[in-house]
Design a protein around this nucleic acid. Structure first.
Lengths: 156, 156
DNA sequence: CATACTAACTGCATGATGCAGCTATAGGCT
DNA sequence: AGCCTATAGCTGCATCATGCAGTTAGTATG
């Protein structure tokens, strides 16, 4: 039987609990918008909303609302794109950077506590495995088509 | 910086996509109820809803609704508990077992495809580390208290 | 210029979740 | 027995994340 599937199920449970814990404790950025903030920060100033949608694999409407919330909270600044009248460019504000650092720090400390008795090698190995697995799943998702009978089929 | 946090973020994205893929393709058990079904199955016949809530770390109301959906779909049978007039016992029906097997199989195949070029040792190691990490996170969550200033503190 | 495309937003729906409140039963204590 | 508290489960209401469809405005291509 699939151990990995069950493991992921359990992992999702603790992740849900973790997010709940955080949202209880802090007047934080709304959960979904935090990931968005992280991506905007990673993309650097001048990012477009559509790039966010692509990066996060989310619907543009979801991105639009999340960005609107971030802008309302003063964490992200929206500027009209000088080269494209339809688009706006996004930039993380100093307040946004602080909020992001704060949030990441919160998670960081929790993970650090969880991994307190792991060796650096174990942590590095797990990090690698996790990344490799995610990539593998992504590939499997994109290269696999799904028939109407519910069977999986490799795309050719 | 926290590699693990970013990895988890990415992992959550592909998991979301995976669930979407599945719900597109199949007239399946509603997502949240699938996990419930799995737990009912694991607990064996005669399980109580409150045990589900405890196992899944979900609110009893959430469990109640999910179970109601499963019963409506004929995947779970509800019987009054002979020893406790307030409670009902739950049992997975043959149809429920089939639906569960079907769903698990779907995920299994996808994961198998993703891990196609992993060695058995690598898979086993990842499985182990994943379980260990989840447990560690759970411990960190339960043994850590949270102050109003947002700092983490180890419970004593 | 006219048509097709694209960036972003908004309206509406869905699903998962929690909290508060309700009902009925159980258990303990006097 | 009679009462008070705890518990099992359900339902109403709210929130959040998300998607799809439709709209508006600007771009690009013939």
């Amino acid at each position: 039987m699939n151990g990995i599937g069950a493991r992921l199920h359990d992992l999702l449970r603790v992740i849900r609990l973790t997010k709940q814990r955080r949202s209880e404790e802090r007047t934080a950025v709304p959960g979904g918008a935090l990931g968005m903030l992280r991506i905007i920060d990673r993309l650097g100033d001048g990012a477009h909303a559509r790039e966010l949608a692509a990066q996060a694999a989310l619907d543009p409407s979801t991105v639009s609302r999340a960005v609107a919330a971030l802008v309302a909270d003063g964490l992200v600044a929206r500027q009209p794109d000088p080269h494209d009248g339809r688009a706006t460019t996004l930039a993380v504000t100093p307040a946004g950077r602080a909020a992001l650092a704060d949030a990441l720090d919160w998670y960081q400390r929790l993970v650090d506590r969880a991994l307190a008795d792991w060796t650096p090698d174990e942590i590095a190995a797990f990090d690698r495995q996790l990344g490799r697995f995610t990539e593998a799943m992504q590939d499997a998702l994109t290269t696999t088509s799904f028939t109407t009978t519910g069977n999986l089929e490799v795309a050719r």
